[in-house]
Nucleic acid binder design. Structure first.
Lengths: 246, 246
DNA sequence: CCTGAAATTTTGTGATATCTTTTTTTCATC
DNA sequence: GATGAAAAAAAGATATCACAAAATTTCAGG
C-alpha cells in the first residue's frame, strides 16, 4: 500500500472534531491497460468511497488529492466532478468538497432504494441465469467466507459487491447497475463505520439463501433473500449507529 | 437563440448517415447567480440532452462544444464527464463522444425503471402533499395545456419534468430524484423523435388523473395514473419507432 | 488570554501550451 | 476510378499558469 504521500489530502480544520483524521490511505487500484489518468483517478477515488476508506464529513481538496495520487489537478477535477454527480462526494456552495454526512432519513431512503432497485435487477437477471454462473457465484461466496476468517473487510466488501453485480449484469439490457452503484457509493462511507464481523457473516448467510433460490429458479425466494441480505446487512447496525450518534 | 457558432460541434463522418446533422442549436439556459462556467455548461448540455435537442448517435467533440458555448475546453470536459457518468453522453473507447443510441431492450428497461422509481418517489411524497402544492401543480398543468396549444414542445417537456419533479421533491430525504433524472436523460434524445401532439395531450390527461388522486390522497390511484402517464407517454410510440427503425 | 482586523497562504476556476493519438486529406499507384 | 500509404490536420489528455475567492495565520490592542 502506498500511504507515503497521502498526507495533504485533508484540510486542517473540520466542523466536527470527530471527523478529523491525520492520515488515511487511498486503496490502490491496478491501472488497467489503456486507461487514462483521469479514469484511473476516478476508479481509485470511487473505490475509496465505495469501500468506506473515506469517513463521512471528511473534507477534501483537489490539490491535496492530486498530490496524494501524484497527478496534476486537472484529471482529479474531472474525476471528482463525476463522483459529485453520483452523490459520492459533495461539492459545497463555498467551493469545498467533502464526503457526505449520513442522516437517519437519508439512510432509510437509501436502503429502501437498494431493495427496490436490486430486487428489480435480480428479477430481470433470473431468466439469464445459467449453471455456470451459479457455480461462479458459489465460488465467490466461498472466497468471502475466507475473507471473513481473515478479517479482511476491504476484500469482503469488494467481493460482496461483485457477487451482487455479477448477478444483475446477466441481463444484457442493463440500465440499473449504474443506479445501484450510485446508492452503494452513498452508503459506502457510512457503512464502514457500521460493519462488524457479525453483520458480515449474516450477509454471507443470505448469499447462501440467494444461491439456493437461484438454483431453484425461484424469483420470489430470491427477492426475499435479497431483501433480507440488504436489511440485515445494514439496517439494524445503521439505525443503531445513527440513533446514538445524535 | 445563438446558433451563430454551433457549426463545429459535430464531426464530419458518422456511422449512420441518418445521424448526420449540419447544424443544431443548444438551447440557452439563464446563467444563475454565482454559477461557475462549468456548472453553466453542465446545465446547458444537460438540458439539451434532456429535451432531446441532440439526436441519438450524434457525435460530439470537446473542442467543438467549447467553441459552440464560447468557452475553453476545460469546463466543457468537466461537464461532459459528469454527463457521461449519468449515461447521458457516451465516451467511446477510442476517445470519441456521442449521444447514446436507443435499442428496443434498453428502451423497455428504461421505461420499467421510470415506473419503478417514480411510483416509489410519488408514494414517498404523498405524506408531504399540501393543498398549496396541489394548486401549484394544477397551475403548472394548465400552463402545459397552453404549451400544447402553442405547439411549444420544448416548454412542454420542461414543464412535464417540473410537474413530476415538484411532486417527488416534497420528500425532504431525497435520494431518488437524481436517479430518475438519469433515466430522463437517457430517454431524452430518443423521446424527441417520438413525441407527437397526441402523445403530449394524453400525457397531460394523465396529469389530471394524478391531480385527482393527489386531492383524494389516494396512493394506489396515484400509482396507477403515474404508470399510465409513463406508459402511454412513451411506450407505444417508442416501440413503434424502434420496430420500424430496424 | 481573548478579540478581530490585516496579511499571508491556500484553493478553486478557467485558459493555454504541449504532447500524443486519431482522423482526415492528399496523392501516387494500380 | 479505386486503393492505400504518407502527410497534414484535428482532437483528446494532462500539466501549468494566472487570477480571484476563501481560509488561515499573524499580531496589535484590549
Amino acid at each position: 500500500m502506498s500511504q507515503a504521500s497521502s498526507r495533504a489530502i485533508l484540510r486542517r480544520d473540520l466542523p466536527h472534531p470527530k471527523a478529523q483524521m491525520t492520515d488515511f490511505p487511498l486503496p490502490e487500484i491496478p491501472p488497467a491497460e489503456g486507461m487514462t489518468t483521469q479514469e484511473h483517478a476516478y476508479a481509485r477515488l470511487r473505490n475509496a468511497v465505495m469501500v468506506g476508506a473515506l469517513k463521512p464529513g471528511t473534507a477534501l481538496t483537489f490539490r491535496g488529492l492530486a498530490q496524494a495520487l501524484g497527478l496534476s489537478p486537472t484529471p482529479i477535477r474531472e474525476a471528482v466532478r463525476r463522483l459529485s454527480t453520483e452523490k459520492a462526494i459533495e461539492v459545497l456552495g463555498n467551493r469545498r468538497l467533502r464526503v457526505p454526512q449520513m442522516t437517519p432519513g437519508r439512510f432509510e431512503e437509501l436502503v429502501e432504494l437498494r431493495v427496490l432497485l436490486e430486487t428489480h435487477a435480480a428479477g430481470r437477471a433470473l431468466p439469464y441465469l445459467s449453471e455456470v454462473v451459479i457455480d461462479r457465484l458459489t465460488a465467490l461466496d466461498n472466497r468471502m467466507d475466507a475473507a471473513i476468517a481473515a478479517h479482511d473487510l476491504d476484500a469482503l466488501t469488494r467481493m460482496n459487491q461483485e457477487f451482487h453485480k455479477t448477478l444483475y449484469a446477466l441481463n444484457p439490457d442493463q440500465a440499473t447497475i449504474p443506479l445501484i452503484e450510485s446508492i452503494w457509493l452513498q452508503l459506502g462511507p457510512f457503512q464502514r463505520q457500521v460493519i462488524e464481523d457479525i453483520a458480515a457473516i449474516t450477509m454471507v448467510d443470505h448469499h447462501k439463501e440467494m444461491l439456493a433460490a437461484m438454483r431453484a429458479r425461484d424469483a420470489a425466494a430470491l427477492r426475499v433473500a435479497l431483501e433480507r441480505d440488504i436489511h440485515d446487512g445494514s439496517i439494524r447496525a445503521g439505525r443503531a449507529m445513527l440513533a446514538t450518534a445524535r
